[in-house]
Amino acid sequence: NITNLCPFDEVFNATRFASVYAWNRKRISNCVADYSVLYNFAPFFAFKCYGVSPTKLNDLCFTNVYADSFVIRGNEVSQIAPGQTGNIADYNYKLPDDFTGCVIAWNSNKLDSKVGGNYNYLYRLFRKSNLKPFERDISTEIYQAGNKPCNGVAGFNCYFPLRSYGFRPTYGVGHQPYRVVVLSFELLHAPATVCGPKKST
Rank of each mutant, 00 (worst) to 15 (best):
D137W: 04
D97E: 12
P82N: 02
A33V: 13
T170C: 03
P54C: 06
N75Q: 15
D97I: 13
L60A: 10
Y35V: 12
K132Y: 09
K198P: 13
K114V: 10
V32L: 10
A33Q: 08
F41A: 10
Y21Q: 05
F126D: 00
N64L: 08
N109T: 03
S29L: 07
Y121Q: 10
L131E: 00
F126A: 04
A42K: 13
H175W: 12
I80L: 07
Q84M: 13
S129G: 14
G117A: 05
L188F: 14
Y21F: 12
S139I: 05
Y121K: 06
D9T: 14
I28G: 05
V173R: 11
C102F: 04
N64C: 11
F185W: 09
Q84A: 15
S53C: 07
P82T: 04
S184F: 08
S78V: 09
P54R: 14
C102S: 02
G116Q: 12
A42R: 13
P96C: 05
N120K: 13
P7Y: 08
L131F: 04
G117I: 03
T85R: 15
C102R: 03
Y178H: 13
Q176V: 03
L57H: 06
T15H: 10
Y93C: 00
N4M: 10
V52P: 06
S113E: 00
A89W: 02
R25A: 02
F134V: 05
E10C: 08
A14T: 08
N30A: 09
G83H: 11
R168N: 02
G196P: 13
T170W: 05
R25Y: 02
F185A: 04
D98N: 15
N147M: 06
K114Q: 13
F12H: 03
P133V: 06
N24T: 14
S129P: 15
W23Y: 09
H189K: 14
C6W: 05
F126R: 04
Y119E: 07
A42I: 10
F126L: 06
I138N: 11
C102Q: 03
C150G: 00
Y50D: 00
K114C: 09
F167Q: 00
K26Q: 11
A67H: 03
A105T: 11
H175P: 00
T15N: 09
N30E: 09
A42Q: 14
V65H: 05
P7V: 10
F45E: 15
F17E: 02
S108H: 01
G155H: 06
F167L: 00
N13T: 08
F17H: 04
G174N: 08
Y178D: 01
P133D: 06
G83C: 09
R127H: 05
S53W: 08
Y50S: 02
S113T: 04
C49T: 03
W106I: 09
V115C: 05
D137R: 03
P82C: 01
D34F: 05
D137N: 03
K148E: 12
I28F: 15
N13F: 08
A46L: 14
S184P: 01
Y119A: 08
I104Y: 13
H189D: 15
S184H: 15
V71P: 00
T140N: 13
E141C: 07
A33C: 10
A18T: 07
P82L: 03
D59K: 12
G166T: 06
S164E: 07
S19E: 02
V32D: 08
P191D: 13
S53N: 15
C102K: 02
Y159L: 01
Y165P: 04
A192Y: 14
V173K: 14
C31S: 06
L60R: 11
E141I: 09
L131Y: 03
L95V: 12
K132R: 13
A18N: 14
G74L: 02
Y171H: 01
Y39I: 11
Y178N: 06
Q176S: 04
C31P: 06
R27A: 10
A22S: 12
S29K: 11
L131G: 01
V32C: 10
S113N: 02
G155W: 05
Y178M: 14
P197D: 12
A89F: 03
L183S: 00
G101N: 00
Q79R: 05
Y39Q: 15
F185D: 02
W23D: 00
N64G: 11
C195R: 12
C6V: 05
T170H: 04
Y178P: 00
D59I: 07
E10W: 06
V194R: 12
L187K: 15
R27W: 08
R168C: 01
I138L: 14
F167M: 00
Y121I: 09
E76Y: 03
P96L: 03
W23I: 02
P133W: 06
C31Y: 06
G116V: 09
N13Q: 08
G116I: 07
D97N: 13
F8Q: 04
Y93K: 02
R179D: 00
Y50H: 06
E76Q: 12
Q79G: 03
N130C: 12
N92V: 01
L122F: 12
Q79T: 04
K128L: 09
P82E: 01
N64R: 11
P169R: 06
D9A: 14
D59H: 12
P191M: 09
R168V: 01
I138T: 14
L111M: 14
R73C: 09
F160H: 15
P197Q: 15
S164M: 06
N4T: 15
V153R: 14
T55A: 14
L131H: 02
N13I: 05
N58I: 08
Q84Y: 06
K110L: 07
I28K: 03
F99S: 01
A33L: 13
P54Q: 12
P7W: 07
A67N: 00
V20T: 04
S78C: 07
D97L: 14
A18K: 07
F45D: 15
S139C: 07
L131Q: 02
K48H: 09
Y123N: 15
K148A: 12
L95E: 00
I28W: 15
Y178K: 04
N40L: 09
N120W: 08
K148N: 12
G74C: 03
R27F: 08
L131K: 02
I142E: 03
W106A: 05
Y121G: 01
I138S: 11
P82F: 02
Q79V: 03
K56R: 12
I80T: 02
G174F: 08
D112V: 03
D68G: 03
F134K: 06
G83K: 13
N107R: 06
Y39C: 07
L131M: 08
G74D: 00
I2Q: 14
Y171L: 00
N130K: 15
E135S: 09
H175R: 01
C6D: 07
N118S: 06
D90M: 09
F126W: 09
G155A: 08
L5A: 13
C61G: 08
L57R: 06
F167I: 00
V65K: 04
K198Q: 14
D9P: 08
V180P: 00
V182F: 00
F185Q: 04
N64E: 12
V181Q: 01
L95D: 00
R168L: 01
G117E: 02
V71E: 00
C150S: 01
N107E: 05
A192S: 12
G74N: 03
F134S: 09
A154P: 11
Y91I: 06
A14R: 09
L187C: 14
Y21A: 06
K26T: 14
